[in-house]
Amino acid sequence: MKILIVDDSSTMRRIIINTLSRIGYADVVEGENGKSGLEKLGQGGVEMIITDWNMPEMDGLEFVKTVRGQNPAIPILMVTTNAAKEDIVEALQAGVNNYVVKPFTPETLKEKIESLLG
């Protein structure tokens, strides 16, 4: 399964990639903001998206809305520092399937991914 990770922090992308490889998902592609995420998505083969919210050029919310306009079915997990209730609701309304607040444990990421794929 190919997973697209969109986050402007290279450290965070490495942490997510590392966690994914430990739980059996080694096929990943990376984007550093919504714009490059859309480019990677356009190259095909992506079956799931993990995206941050706060990014330059195109933020995660705009990215999710754009993706949903093209692909209503692809599972999207938002992983962000935004913890306010209104943020979570806004993300869900935009089309996010599940939501993780940073910092997270590998167990949480695993649980959320499995619930999206299950």
Partner: peptide, 26 residues
């Protein structure tokens, strides 16, 4: 600049500090 969160007051530093809250909202 990158977009920013509405507040940093709720941003935790301990892993999964906000998990229960986020799960309840979802």
């Amino acid at each position: 600049r990158p977009s920013i969160s509405h507040t940093i007051a709720q941003t935790g530093t301990t892993p999964d500090e906000n998990k229960a809250h986020a799960d309840a909202v979802i």
